[in-house]
């Protein structure tokens, strides 16, 4: 049931924004990968050179934070997905659609 989300169907119609252009996307990817690599390298260097001060033995591992970030992100992605599958009900589960609409109160709300 993962195809609930509307894949916005506009790339064929030429309605492409600045950040969606292929060249821009490539630049963003390179920037992300490069900064990941730099900070991982800095972390390893700092640990070897001895000016990093870990709190525990666990984060004495030079790339501990990188691993933690990736692992938690993976667990969270999967967990969130499972939770969504298990606990999401149709939007009229508690309230009927009529309950969600606002009666015009004449206050001139936008």
């Amino acid at each position: 049931m993962s195809d609930n989300h509307h894949t916005p169907a506009s790339e064929e119609t030429g309605d492409t924004g600045f950040f969606e252009k292929p060249g821009m996307r490539k630049i963003l990817w390179v920037a992300l990968l490069a900064s990941c690599a730099i900070f991982a390298a800095l972390g390893i260097y700092g640990m070897v050179a001895g000016w990093m001060h870990p709190y525990f033995t666990l984060d004495g591992l030079p790339v501990f934070y990188a691993l933690a970030g990736a692992i938690v992100a993976a667990v969270l992605g999967a967990g969130g997905r499972l939770l969504s599958e298990a606990l999401t009900k149709p939007s009229d589960y508690y309230d009927s659609p009529a309950d969600e609409t606002r009666p015009d109160d004449g206050e001139g709300r936008p």
């Binding site: 049931m1 993962s2 195809d3 609930n4 989300h5 990817w29 992300l32 990968l33 900064s35 990941c36 900070f39 991982a40 972390g43 790339v63 934070y65 990188a66 691993l67 933690a68 970030g69 990736a70 938690v72 992100a73 993976a74 992605g77 969130g80 997905r81 939770l83 969504s84 599958e85 606990l87 999401t88 009900k89 149709p90 939007s91 589960y93 508690y94």
Partner: peptide
Amino acid sequence: QLILFAVLLFALARRFGLAARPRDGVL
């Protein structure tokens, strides 16, 4: 490190179609 690698993982998941938005409705 923490932030960038988390972002990297989410980006990779998107790139390879492993991540989708949660289902629409009430949680």
